[in-house]
Structures are given as structure tokens and as C-alpha cells.
Design a protein around this nucleic acid. Structure first.
Length: 576
RNA sequence: GCAUCGAUGGUCUAGAGGUAUGACGUUGGCCUUCCAAGCCGAUAGCCCGGGUUCGAAUCCCGGUCGAUGCACCA
């Protein structure tokens, strides 16, 4: 097989057999959008559910669901309104579009990235166009924001954006989630849903979409507790191929490292990040990526997003696109919670009680209300509150209330020594975020599981999907569509359906042709009803990958298939 | 968004200023006792819009989508 053509073959198969196809084809499609067909939607749901098995069931991080449209403030706080833009301009001569800061720096203008718009416009006016070489002259710089903007409600509309990541939903719900988890750290919440980025020029088919599905987990941890993950032992010896910053500088191959070693050697920032590296590896292999085509690449310092400290891209190797990011694992620190705290004016911290409350002596100022009251009337209360919050000091105090300077002579307050009990501390948690691109994952699974092989002179195309990922789980085929074989097959099909097994009945065409149809969509097993079935009450069970068959009794067929589909029993263990 | 190239049934493809070839697929029937067999029949197509022309799927222009290069991808 010519490997360069794998993308074409996979996409052709995906379109023809109902996995993925371009959106609104009857109107000519739109770049950056795809539709999932019947098998694709089914497969995508299976992948999402496997992800849930890990994050919701194993980790115990409940799933939430928040709107895809968010009010402007959310994205002002997150930094996306300001930070998710590129300053761009169009050359008036050749009509090419450029990023303003890149063009300016290319022309030798220093510090262009931090210039104001007008300053940058002035600088660009004297430089030649990077494409056509003409001196640019007057160019209008405009902000291109990668977020889709919309209005909420009629009339004077409130501005809204389609979310560029699902993460903000977990952050804005922080205090409700905190209460849900009964005020304890660590806890986490996850979300699977659509996100939107108005890419300037999406290429690469399913790899860069304008609307895509993310599965994100936000795990809130005590800043001092990141070094120890409570269940780290699960993955301590789990080996993951790491491509560290050093590997990249030295141009080395990734290296399989056990997680405890990675933390000990300081390759990975702490146990929390390491834990999710390993967990991610397990998920990716489980959904059907080839282990030898996965690597974990650490972000170079200049590559990190505005919020992250240690950050890893999990990449898969595509025959067409090279190494492609499927998952990002970042320590976002307290960036997001602090940002929302300051934008919203509400608390985004956790009160953590001390096991043994401590008593501390402290001096504080106590306003003498008897004197303050008559003197300041309506302002007295506000003044008193300010005084209480001040560092104790001797002498006259100067305050500012509503722009007015007010002097408070010492006789209006007293300095008191008191012993208070400190019951705990307010902590803003740090956030560890594993973020998965579901669409890319699905494509990676398709590409890695696609195979062509020659069987008796004919090319057999087969998707070697794990049985728990295949959209159709079993094919039920009568050897001949008559002599009662079809009736038995239909009855078996019905029995499987009752067990919630996705089964397809097919009687059309030669048996070999029907096997091939199922191979192409990755159906892992086929039940064939033949003439022996009537005599012995047995059917044949064919495995997709080996094309081997065994005879098995009709009795208990559903349970056996259920085990095979879950991977709890292997086909190779079966005997006729 | 720029440049170059491309777009013909579901898929692959031939051809071409007078509406189209073949194969595969799908499907109805016959046949067929386990891996795309055979026979007969059916099926559906020139990316969209405008122009030139008696007539455009074909020529021209614009758009859309795709490939490649540039640019973009916190």
C-alpha cells in the first residue's frame, strides 16, 4: 500500500460508508465543518463513552454541560477577547493579508508585537509589502478575533461569543462545583462538547475544524498538593514515550520513561501532570491508536499559552500530516480562577480548615462609634469598615471615601490587642487540564486502523477497530437467504438487539461479499447461519482480523458476544 | 486570503461546442452449501452563478470545495 494515499483512502471510505463527510454538500460545503454520518456518529459516541469511563467513572470527576454561547465577560476574563486576536492588515497593492506584527518584525522593526495599533500602522507605512515589495503606505490594521461573535437577544444586544474551549464552563461554575464537592480539594469536573474557532484558513480536512468537539477535564488542586497525586501508584511504573524540551533541542527520538522516574528526574513538573500523561496514553491505546505512533511532546517555553506553566502535547503520527496534536495537558495554575475572581468580583477560593485551629494574637483598630457616628453621619459606617481593615498604626489616619480625603484623629478609635482563632486559610486552587480533541482522535483511530491486504488476489480493505469502538458490533448472515436460514438469522439478530448489541442483518449477495462489506466498516464479528445450524443448533462465528471461524452453540450466544465486544474474552480462546 | 492545478453517477474513470464511456458499487431476479464467482434487468452523473453562442458539461469570468506553495494555526 502506498502510505501517502492513506488519507485519501480513509476519507473516501469514510464518505462512502457513512463515517464523515463534508457539511451541506448540496450547497458546495464549507471549509472547516464536517458532518458525522450514521457510523461516524456512533463511533464518536463510543469514543466519548470510553473517555467517560476513564474520567467520570475511574477518576470520579462528574460531567457538566454548559452553553456553547457565553456572555462577553466570560471571555474578557479568560483573555480570549484580547488575546485570541491577530492584528492583521491587507496590502493595498497586491491584496495579500498579513499579520501586522510579523510583517513589521520581518522588516526589521523591533518590538512590533507590543506596539499600539497607530504606532504599528505608522511603522508599516514605510516598509515594503512582504509579498509584492511595494512600499505599503497607508494600511488599516484590524483585529481578527478567532472567536465567532453573536448577539444575545433583540434590541440593544448583549454581545456573546461561541466558546473557543469548553474549559471556561468549568471555571465559571467553580463555586457551585466546590459546594457540590463539599468544599474539599482536589476535585474535578469534565465536559464534552462543541467548541468553535473561526480559523482564517482551515486546511487538512478533519484536523483543523471551525467547529469541533472537545473533551476537557479541569482538576482543581491545592497549589502545594500538586507534587502528590493520591492515586499516583496506579501509573508510577507506566511507561510513556516522552519528547522533552531537551530531546527537541538535541533533536533526539522520544524515550519511554516510567512516570515515577519522569517526576523524579524533573522531566515532568509534578505527579499530577505525570498521572494524566499516563492516563491519556491508556485512553488513546484503548480507543485504537497505534502505541508506536503516539508521543508526548513538551511545549518549548516560548510555545506555551498565556496561562500555562508545564504543558505537553500528545501527538499521533499521521501518514499525511506528520505529528498532530490530539491532546494537550497543561498546568494552568490559578490563572483562570484569579481572572474570573477579578472580573466578576466574586470569590474563587476554597476555605481549607486547619486540623487544629491556631490562636494568634494580633492588634487591631476598633472605631469608637459613639464619636464617629455624630461626626460623620451617613459616611460613618463606611469609615468604620475601612478602619477595621487597616494595619494598626499610631496617630492620625487619612482615608479616602468617594474621592474625599478624611482625617481621623486617634481619639476616634482605639487599638485593641485580641486573640483570634485561625480556623483555616483561603486558597485559590491550581488547575490541571487534560484537553482532548475528539474529532482528531476519531480520525487518528480511522487512519491507524485502516489496512489493505491482498487475499487470494483481491484487495481486502479492513478497519481494524477495537471491538468496543466499532460502530456495528456484529453482522448476522444467513449463508443462503432461504430454506429457513434467513428466519433463524433474523431471530438471532433480534436476540442480540435485546442485549443492546448493535447488529446488522444482511442476506444480500454472496457470503464472501457480505464479509467484505463488514470488514470495511470494521465490524469485528460475524455470525453465519448455515445448514448445520438446523441440525446442531450451532452457528459459525467469524473474527474480522484473522478471518477465522469457530462453531459455537446458539445457547448463550448473546453473552459470549457481549464478552467479546467488551474485550473481556478473546476470540483466540474459543474452540469449536 | 494570494498563487498554481483540479472538480464527470455513491466510488474510480473515458470523452467532448450538439447533454456522456466503461468499471466497481447498490438494487430486483436466477444461480450459488463460507470469504468481493456467474447470468439477466434496474439505478443514478458533467460543482454553483454569470457571460459568449442558435446551442455550454465543454470556451471566458466570478464563486465554492479540494490538493500544493505562501500566509495563518493562543
Amino acid at each position: 500500500m502506498q502510505m501517502g494515499d492513506v488519507y485519501e483512502s480513509v476519507m473516501e471510505l469514510a464518505k462512502r460508508r457513512g463515517f464523515i463527510w463534508p457539511t451541506a454538500e448540496c450547497y458546495g460545503s464549507v471549509a472547516g465543518f464536517i458532518d458525522y454520518g450514521p457510523l461516524g456518529a456512533m463511533m464518536k459516541r463510543r469514543i466519548e463513552n470510553i473517555w467517560r469511563d476513564f474520567f467520570v467513572i475511574q477518576e470520579g470527576y462528574y460531567e457538566i454541560e454548559s452553553p456553547v454561547i457565553g456572555p462577553e465577560q466570560v471571555f474578557i476574563a479568560s483573555g480570549h477577547v484580547k488575546g485570541f486576536v491577530d492584528k492583521m492588515f491587507q496590502c493595498p497593492h497586491c491584496r495579500e493579508y498579513f499579520r501586522a506584527d510579523h510583517a513589521a518584525e520581518g522588516a526589521g522593526i523591533k518590538n512590533a508585537a507590543h506596539m499600539e495599533r497607530s504606532e504599528l500602522e505608522g511603522a508599516l507605512a514605510r516598509t515594503p509589502c512582504p509579498a509584492c515589495g511595494t512600499i505599503l503606505g497607508e494600511v488599516g490594521i484590524f483585529d481578527f478575533n478567532l472567536m465567532f461573535q453573536t448577539g444575545i437577544g433583540p434590541g440593544i444586544q448583549r454581545r456573546g461569543y461561541l466558546r473557543p474551549e469548553t474549559a471556561q464552563g468549568m471555571f465559571t461554575n467553580f463555586s457551585r462545583l466546590l459546594r457540590f464537592y463539599r468544599d474539599r480539594l482536589p476535585f474535578g469536573a469534565v465536559q464534552i462538547g462543541k467548541s468553535f474557532r473561526n480559523e482564517i484558513s482551515p486546511r487538512q480536512g478533519v484536523i483543523r475544524l471551525r467547529e469541533f468537539t472537545q473533551a476537557e477535564a479541569e482538576i482543581f488542586v491545592h497549589p502545594a498538593g500538586k507534587a502528590r497525586h493520591p492515586y499516583f501508584y496506579r501509573y508510577a511504573e507506566y511507561r510513556v514515550p516522552l519528547l522533552t524540551i531537551e530531546h527537541q533541542i538535541e533533536n533526539m527520538e522520544p524515550e519511554a520513561v516510567a512516570m515515577d522516574e519522569a517526576v523524579k528526574k524533573g522531566l515532568v513538573a509534578h505527579e499530577y501532570v505525570a498521572y494524566y500523561l499516563a492516563l491519556t496514553h491508556e485512553i488513546l491505546v484503548r480507543v485504537g491508536l497505534s502505541p508506536e505512533k503516539i508521543r508526548f511532546r513538551q511545549h518549548m517555553p516560548d510555545e506555551r499559552a498565556h496561562y500555562a506553566t508545564d504543558c505537553w502535547d500528545v501527538e499521533f503520527l499521521s501518514e499525511r500530516f506528520g505529528w498532530v496534536e490530539v491532546v494537550g495537558i497543561a498546568d494552568r495554575t490559578d490563572y483562570d480562577l484569579k481572572a474570573h475572581a477579578s472580573e466578576s468580583g466574586t470569590s474563587f477560593s476554597v476555605f481549607l480548615p486547619l486540623e487544629n485551629p491556631i490562636r494568634v494574637k494580633r492588634r487591631c483598630l476598633v472605631p469608637r462609634m459613639k464619636l464617629l457616628g455624630p461626626l460623620f453621619k451617613g459616611k460613618a459606617k463606611e469609615i468604620a469598615e475601612k478602619i477595621e481593615r487597616m494595619e494598626p498604626a499610631e496617630g492620625e489616619i487619612t482615608l479616602e471615601i468617594a474621592g474625599e480625603r478624611i482625617r481621623i484623629p486617634p481619639e476616634l478609635y482605639e487599638i485593641r490587642e485580641e486573640e483570634v482563632e485561625v480556623r483555616g486559610q483561603e486558597v485559590i486552587p491550581h488547575v490541571v487540564e487534560p484537553s482532548y480533541g475528539i474529532d482528531r482522535m476519531l480520525y487518528a483511530v480511522l487512519e491507524h486502523s485502516y489496512a489493505e491486504e491482498v487475499v487470494e488476489g483481491e484487495t481486502r480493505r479492513v478497519l481494524r477497530l477495537p471491538p468496543w469502538v466499532s460502530p456495528v458490533q456484529v453482522a448476522v448472515l444467513p449463508l443462503m437467504p432461504r430454506d429457513g436460514l434467513d428466519e433463524i438469522a433474523r431471530e438471532i439478530h433480534g436476540r442480540l438487539t435485546l442485549k443492546k448489541i448493535v447488529a446488522e442483518y444482511d442476506e444480500n449477495g454472496a457470503i464472501g461479499r457480505r464479509y467484505r462489506r463488514q470488514d470495511e466498516i470494521g465490524t469485528p464479528f460475524a455470525i453465519t447461519v448455515d445448514y448445520e445450524t438446523k441440525d446442531t443448533g450451532t452457528v459459525t462465528l467469524r473474527e474480522r482480523d484473522s478471518m477465522k471461524q469457530v462453531r459455537i452453540p446458539l445457547e448463550g450466544l448473546e453473552d459470549l458476544l457481549d464478552l467479546l465486544i467488551k474485550g473481556e474474552k478473546m476470540f483466540s480462546q474459543l474452540r469449536s
